[in-house]
Design a protein around this nucleic acid. Sequence first.
DNA 1: ACAAAAGTGTTCCGCCTACACCCATGC
DNA 2: GCATGGGTGTAGGCGGAACACTTTTGT
Lengths: 248, 248
Amino acid sequence: MTERASTRDHARVAVTVDLLIFTVRQGALHVLLIERGHAPFEGQVALPGGYVRTGEHLDAAALRELREETGIDGSRLHLEQLRTYGDPDRDPRGRVITVAYLALGPDMPAAQAGTDARHAEWTPVKAILEGRINLAFDHEVILREGLERARFQLEYTTVAAAFCTEPFTIAELRHIYEVVWGLTLDASNFRRKVTGAHGFLIPTGKHRTQEIGRPAALYRRGPAQLLSPPLLRSSDVHRSSPNLLVLH
Amino acid sequence: MTERASTRDHARVAVTVDLLIFTVRQGALHVLLIERGHAPFEGQVALPGGYVRTGEHLDAAALRELREETGIDGSRLHLEQLRTYGDPDRDPRGRVITVAYLALGPDMPAAQAGTDARHAEWTPVKAILEGRINLAFDHEVILREGLERARFQLEYTTVAAAFCTEPFTIAELRHIYEVVWGLTLDASNFRRKVTGAHGFLIPTGKHRTQEIGRPAALYRRGPAQLLSPPLLRSSDVHRSSPNLLVLH
DNA sequence: ACAAAAGTGTTCCGCCTACACCCATGC
DNA sequence: GCATGGGTGTAGGCGGAACACTTTTGT
């Protein structure tokens, strides 16, 4: 943070926030995309986002854009900064840097069309990774980096619970891990690990009866942020595990 | 990344990069600080950094400021984005957001005064954490977050080697862990872990004779970025471990 | 010979994996 | 009863912590 009165080459640039919002629905990882209504990249899909306003916090801008473009209330989501992307050529309109946010949330009631009437749609991440859908700008890079971060965070933090609607069962939580990692985990050992991790889960005492089988105990998120010991994706993989998602 | 032709409240803001550069010297963790030559915060110490120029990559701006303000060639450092700080009130001059970078490097030959003649000085991190030195702007927040990140990264990545000048001994590498974590580790088990981690260390075949004791084998960094299994700071703590650094 | 630091061997214990088994429900 | 998923028990094995021990140097 230097003041260089002499060399005043410092540009004033436009700053946007972009949101990479993941959820698990229908057994697959989905990301929320909007269809662009204007140039550049008109008609293409992109991550929701928009310009930061004068005097607005970055986090506040992220929450506002989330609400405006998708109708989602961000207070129930896990939201954190991913990275700032500042390639001078990343936006054809000129110098625009973007602060990308990673958001994890439960399957939303319905992604409402935004105030400015563009669709907001849940899209399987797999379709983008396999090249069947192209994203505007450098948004595919953001998605890949965010996906790797999310997978990593599941190992060392308790964010997986952010994907579940409270109260939730342990099987639902395990399903999150299985879908995001593309693995099948041993149900018994998974249970022991997460119930043993201090502050991860709080039993509600209630149970939910599924269509079939024994009713499952319901839990809420505990106060713990970090998960110790970590839940490594390399270990405890169940036999016959199909790779649901293409890695890298 | 939305174009909102209607509501053009989006501000064009100044963007800076700030550098949080850690090194280990004289048995303690140090951070590189400069003394500010102008208002605001004139005379106070701050992280090195400066404005991003027109058409300049963020990473390039970080490397340039590093060279200009401290005389350090960044190509030998580990450099990565930490986080972007965008509180509208963080700079009294107006809206300035900063992209903070975390850099880890070996003890530098000497922190040269920068081109604009301000001092650049290695300062013990402890002195800042204990409140004996106050940093300008929100730089203490950046330092605390970066320190936590560095400590975390030592567990799961191979960045600790970035603190060492190649070639280095295992004892030197262990010393890095001990200083950053503020613990004493068991030398034998540490050796086995790091030599066993695939791609962490490459033996050079050479040895270095210290002033006393058996000569130590010399290593270079291997290609591995991630460390598996992780080297957890909670475990393998040697008896009688003084906490060299105040946590949080 | 002794001190000091590098490096190896070995025991013990805890945890984690794998899998068998029991429980609670709907049909 | 039987199928299905929730939940518990347990044996075996792997790996890590602790620490004794050997090696290689300088004085």
